[in-house]
């Protein structure tokens, strides 16, 4: 249908009477890396959760890899199989081993044989540098390791797009670096990435574009050097002055 990975036009969403997303328009090209930032409550997490259907939008259109998210049966599952999501709180399944966490969806959604799923899972656990933890339970790992497992779990589905919802916000300072490094390595493979984060260093080095959101709307979209050096909107300026000190 198109060359873009994600196409969002005229998207609106409400929580009860509260207007969380206001007329969002955003197109992400294949292989593009977009960082979304903004103050808390600006709707950036909601936007990213709309992209794989965890939140439903009420107005507008949202197309992911040519498939439009809709009320049609099976559509959401089809989109989700193409989109990996990494949460702030990792959300690993505590009753399954690291390996089982990774193989669950490939086996039951993509119907891969167990052995194949395991080979795939090990490949991605190696990519995030923790193959030796494969047989442990999530509770036995540190926060940084858990988040890397979560990344490997999403990758084992071989998605075309990876979404990150504040992946380092729940981590102790000394563990942020290992997760960010993994994400940089992932970016180098050409993966399409949408990242909600406050790590401006990451945005500067990895992003093609930075999206600034405030009060449910997109205020400014710009390449990182332009975004950080000469922001257009006064709201962006104020945000940057608070976050970069």
């Amino acid at each position: 249908m198109s060359t873009s990975a994600v196409e969002i036009t005229g998207l609106n969403k409400w929580f009860k009477a509260f207007h969380v997303l206001k007329d969002i328009n955003l197109t992400v090209a294949r292989g593009e890396r977009v960082v979304i930032c903004g103050p808390s409550g600006s709707g950036k997490s909601t936007l990213i959760r709309c992209i794989n259907g965890l939140e439903r939008h009420q107005e507008g259109r949202l197309t992911v890899e040519g498939v439009e998210l809709s009320e049609e049966i099976g559509q959401i599952e089809a989109v989700r199989a193409n989109v990996g999501l990494v949460f702030q709180q990792f959300n690993l399944f505590p009753h399954l081993t690291v390996l089982e966490n990774c193989t669950l969806a490939p086996m039951w959604v993509k119907r891969l044989p167990k052995r194949e799923a395991e080979t795939l899972a090990m490949k991605y656990l190696e990519r995030v540098h923790i193959p030796e933890q494969a047989l442990k339970y999530p509770g036995q790992l540190s926060g940084g390791q858990q988040q890397r497992v979560a990344i490997a779990r999403a990758l084992t589905m071989e998605p075309r797009i990876m979404l990150f919802d504040e992946p380092t916000s729940a981590l102790d300072p000394e563990m942020i670096k290992e997760v960010l490094e993994t994400m940089v390595e992932l970016a180098e493979t050409g993966m399409t990435m949408l990242v909600v984060t406050h790590e401006m260093g990451f945005a500067r080095t990895v992003a093609n574009r930075v999206v600034f959101m405030d009060e449910g709307e997109i205020v400014e979209i710009a390449p990182p050097e332009e975004f950080f050096t000469k922001p257009k909107s006064p709201r962006t300026k104020e945000f940057l002055s608070q976050i970069l000190r």
């Binding site: 036009t9 005229g10 507008g60 259109r61 439009e68 809709s70 009320e71 049609e72 049966i73």
Partner: peptide
């Protein structure tokens, strides 16, 4: 303003529910 996608009624999630 984007027009919503048209889906046959029997393919809608709400219909199934």
């Amino acid at each position: 303003m984007a027009t919503p996608l048209r889906i046959a009624w029997w393919r809608r999630r709400r219909t199934r529910d």
